[in-house]
């Protein structure tokens, strides 16, 4: 077609703009950080920031799938706390029989992954088979998981067996070829997530359902199954995040992972995924998570602005991100 050539430049421009948004914000923050503090760009600082972002990051990868399909999961924070608590209880209980070594830890991790997946499945089944709004379902399970961890810890704190702690710790603090383990795990999760989202049927179906559920149904897509899978995936990734969290802190209590759901959702939105569903990108979410973590980091590295304003900056970034999305949609 003859007109094909002429339209191209315009659409590439439009694409670039939406792609550039989060990257631009990230670049600005890096420049700002570097100019405020010479230590900012040091390997230790950057590695530290990304490692700390990995918990929310891994969870936010799952949230990207859920949100892209038109769903929402508000329970990720309290489910993380619950899964971490259960892991500690299971590991501690296994020490007498399996000893305080890797066998126990591996069983504990597998149990965490299973419990997370089951929690996600519960959310997913209530949404699909139960035909209840995801907002309501996960608001409910948010409360339930939070109460369960408080109950399990008897109002106090669950502590990991001290001996196990020593063996397990390197999973968070260790490194491979100088790269901290949590960063490696985060990177693997993100890369696999990106590939699944963009290159597989599942990813395509997730976006189709979020774009128009009826069209998906009339295109022979098993809508309920795909939705359920997004919640199970979310739960599974919570299990992975918990497996990194437990060696770092060695404990879990009622204030573990509070408000992580909002951080995860914020990262997803900043990254350019549409809250109403239909379009999502994992790499954007990764950038979003790092942006949120950098804001806190930069505020801590300088002394002009109080770090207490951290959340205000994060909030402003979220609002700006959505404004940019809106202007993109209108163009």
């Amino acid at each position: 077609m003859s007109s094909e050539r002429s339209e191209r430049p315009k659409s590439r421009l439009r694409l670039n703009y939406s792609v550039l948004g989060p990257l631009l914000a990230l670049a600005l923050l890096i420049v700002l950080g570097a100019s405020l503090n010479g230590n900012f760009l040091s390997y230790t600082n950057i590695a530290n920031v990304v490692a700390r972002a990995s918990f929310i990051g891994i969870i936010a990868v799952g949230a990207t799938f859920v949100i892209t399909s038109g769903g929402l999961d508000l329970s990720v924070g309290s489910m993380s706390a619950f899964v971490a608590g259960m892991m500690i209880i299971i590991i501690n209980a296994l020490v007498p029989s399996l000893g305080a070594g890797w066998a126990t830890i591996i069983v504990g991790i597998l149990a965490g992954l299973a419990i997370g997946s089951l929690g996600g499945a519960a959310n997913g089944l209530l949404v699909t088979a139960g035909r209840i709004e995801p907002f309501i379902v996960t608001l409910g399970t948010l409360g339930i998981f939070r109460a369960l961890i408080t109950f399990l810890a008897n109002g106090g704190t669950l502590n990991l067996n001290f001996e196990v702690s020593g063996v397990y710790e390197p999973v968070y603090t260790g490194d491979i070829l100088g790269v901290p383990v949590p960063i490696i795990v985060f990177a693997v999760v993100a890369i696999v997530g990106e590939v699944v989202m963009r290159r597989t049927r599942f990813g395509r179906h997730v976006a189709a359902i979020g774009s128009n559920e009826q069209v998906a149904r009339y295109s022979a897509i098993n809508v309920d199954r795909v939705r359920l899978l997004t919640y199970i995936l979310q739960g599974f990734l919570i299990g992975i995040a918990a497996a990194l969290y437990v060696p770092k802190f060695g404990s879990a209590n009622s204030s573990t992972a509070v408000l992580w759901e909002l951080q995860a959702i914020a990262a997803v939105i900043i990254g350019g995924t549409m809250l109403k569903g239909g379009f999502g990108r994992i790499w954007g979410t990764v950038v979003g998570v790092i942006i949120l973590e950098l804001i806190g980091n930069i505020l801590n590295l300088q002394n002009l602005i109080s770090p207490y304003l951290n959340q205000a900056f994060q909030g402003a970034i979220i609002i700006i991100a959505v404004l940019l999305q809106r202007s993109r949609r209108q163009s």
């Binding site: 128009n212 009826q214 069209v215 009339y218 239909g278």
Partner: peptide
């Protein structure tokens, strides 16, 4: 309503 994903 059922046929095409209009935003794709």
């Amino acid at each position: 309503g059922h046929g095409l994903l209009l935003d794709k």
